[in-house]
Every structure is written in structure tokens, then in C-alpha cells.
Write a protein that binds this DNA or RNA. Structure first.
Length: 309
DNA sequence: AAGTGTTTATACATAC
DNA sequence: GTATGTATAAACACTT
């Protein structure tokens, strides 16, 4: 089976679902999130088939983004004007694809009701997911905890996020965003033990123990990661804010304006196409159809949110 | 106006 | 046979 990204399918329809194609595009991006237009671009660049009938498949793709819980919206920052939001993969959909391949999904990814209700997330998919994804996105562009690794091997911080229903501000705090003292204290008390950086080492060790190649040579689609990672960006993600905050608990809307990232002070570069973290990320192996993934070997029991609906 | 996002509906293929 | 996953179409609302 030819690998994606090499125009191997010429004009034939690639054997990938829209979910797969979208996940590819997102995971291939440096920030692990892309605006819709960039997802379109990615697909069209790699699969000539999708250079035609754009209205048809793009409609389908948008449908998939909205319909599937594995995709979450991350709003643009005020200083990143443009149409639409960024789209990211839900932090828990790491082993969504069977055998580490995009050719086939393991099972439908669905956010549990508990996550919806407990978090009071107005958005269907949950603000914490957006926050966690944003955190993941941040991690891939300067921080050191690629969410794919988090996802597949070290579940600690994810578990806290979900089970604890950590407010958005907490995630932002851990991302380095300025959080008012009160909230910061809440973070410290609620989330004191989360070793974000530790999870990387744990992940790497676990991966090594499992014989899983987290090799730095190749990332998605057989593209040499080193070639892509000419520089580690210090960029931060778009500010993760809930799409539809509920009146009962508006985590960000109710926060003081100081919580919003000062555009000048924390101005991250615009999302680039380099991939600083792909080298160490099992996401790379996820993208590698021929290599069994750590997620696969561990089975789906790792994931509380991968459920049959 | 065009792009984006959501939702509903239908049809087909495959797994259980 | 039923459930699930996916593809497609379409209508509509919202944003830029």
C-alpha cells in the first residue's frame, strides 16, 4: 500500500476516510491543529483526486469535523484573524485507528457523557478537550509533551483533565498563560502532581520497553522529520476557550480580561508547517501504516472514551 | 457573498 | 438481522 503524502494515488480515490484524511492533516501540522482551509489544502496537495468535486467532499469533510467527537474546535486568538476556528484532534483519540494505520478506524470515538456534563462544557465536545488539545498543540511547538505520547502511553494528565474536570484556566496556566492568582492556586491544589514533562520520559521509556519505534528519523507519511524540523518554534496555540460557554459555568468569559493573552507580549508566530515534536511522537507511528503502534499493542482498554455508541 | 459550522437524512458496506 | 462506520446531499445559521 503506497503511503500517503507521496501523490501515490494519482487521480484515484485514496483508501482513506475523511476522518483519516483530516487526522493526517492535523497531525502533520506543527501545532497539531489547522484551520479548515489548511485541511483542504493538505488533502488537495497530497491527493489529486480531491482537486475535483471540491464542493462535494469539502461538505463531507465539514460534516465529519462537526459530527465526530474526535475533532474539536479551537477558536482563533484575537490577534489571529481569519475565518473559522482551528481544528484539532481530541487528546484521547490517539489510538482511534486500528493498527496504527489511517486505513481503518478501530472504533468510533465518542466523548462520554460524563465529560460533557461534569465539565459543564457548552460545546458538544467539551471545553476541556479543546483545552487539552490546545495544550497538546502547544506541547508540540515548544513544550515537551507531545500529546500523542501523552495519549497513547501516559494517561496521567489526561485522566486528571477528564476526571477532575479541570477548568480551562488551569490548562492555560500550565501552558504558561497568565492566570490570576486565585485560579492559579486552584490549579496548584487541584493539579499539584501532574508531571507534564515526566510523562514524556515515561512515554519514551514505555515505548522503548514495548519495542515501539519512536524513532526520530521519519514522521508522518515517511517524511523525514529532521527535514521538517529545522527549528523549534516557541509558538503557542490559539487561546483555548470554549466555543459555547454555558451560563452556569463560563470559565473564560467570566475571567478577567487579564487572562486573555496579550498579543504583543506573548505573540506566537503564526502556525507553521514545521514539525518540532513529530520526531518523538507516536503520532508519527500512528501515521505509519506499516508499523504497529503502541496503542494497538496496548489495546483499547486504555481509553475510557473510546466506546461503542 | 463566500466561507465556515451544524444538523438531518439517506444509502451503502462491514462487523458483530 | 442489527449496529456501526462512512459517504453524500442538503438546508440553515453564523462569521468574516
Amino acid at each position: 500500500m503506497p503511503r500517503p503524502g507521496k501523490s501515490s494515488y494519482s487521480d484515484q480515490k485514496p483508501p482513506y476516510s475523511y476522518i483519516s484524511l483530516t487526522a493526517m492533516a492535523i497531525q502533520h501540522s506543527a501545532e497539531k491543529m489547522l484551520p479548515l482551509s489548511d485541511i483542504y489544502k493538505f488533502i488537495m496537495e497530497r491527493f489529486p483526486y480531491y482537486r475535483e468535486h471540491t464542493q462535494r467532499w469539502q461538505n463531507s469533510l465539514r460534516h465529519n469535523l462537526s459530527f465526530n467527537d474526535c475533532f474539536i474546535k479551537i477558536p482563533r486568538r484575537p490577534d489571529q484573524p481569519g475565518k473559522g476556528s482551528f481544528w484539532a484532534l481530541h487528546p484521547d483519540c490517539g489510538d482511534m485507528f486500528e493498527n496504527g494505520s489511517f486505513l481503518r478506524r478501530r472504533k468510533r470515538f465518542k466523548v462520554l457523557r460524563a465529560e460533557h456534563t461534569h465539565l459543564h462544557a457548552g460545546s458538544t465536545k467539551g471545553a476541556s478537550a479543546a483545552a487539552a488539545a490546545a495544550a497538546a498543540a502547544a506541547s508540540t511547538s515548544g513544550f515537551k509533551h507531545p500529546f500523542a505520547i501523552e495519549n497513547i502511553i501516559s494517561r496521567d494528565y489526561k485522566g486528571v483533565l477528564q476526571a477532575g474536570g479541570l477548568p480551562l484556566a488551569s490548562v492555560m496556566h500550565h501552558l504558561g498563560y497568565p492566570v490570576p492568582g486565585q485560579l492559579g492556586n486552584v490549579v496548584s491544589s487541584v493539579w499539584p502532581h501532574v508531571g507534564v514533562m515526566d510523562s514524556v520520559a515515561a512515554a519514551a521509556a514505555a515505548a522503548a520497553a514495548a519495542g515501539v519505534p519512536v524513532g526520530p528519523e521519519y514522521g508522518a507519511f515517511g517524511v523525514p522529520v529532521k527535514a521538517l524540523c529545522h527549528s523549534a518554534s516557541q509558538s503557542l496555540p490559539a487561546v483555548p476557550v470554549p466555543i459555547k460557554p454555558t451560563p452556569s459555568l463560563p470559565p473564560v468569559a467570566a475571567l478577567p480580561p487579564t487572562l486573555t493573552v496579550p498579543a504583543a507580549a506573548q505573540q506566537p508566530p503564526a502556525p507553521s508547517t514545521v514539525c518540532p515534536a513529530a520526531a518523538a511522537s507516536p503520532a508519527a507511528s500512528l501515521l505509519e501504516p506499516t508499523a504497529p503502534s503502541a496503542a494497538e499493542s496496548k489495546g483499547s482498554s486504555l481509553h475510557s472514551v473510546l466506546v461503542h455508541s
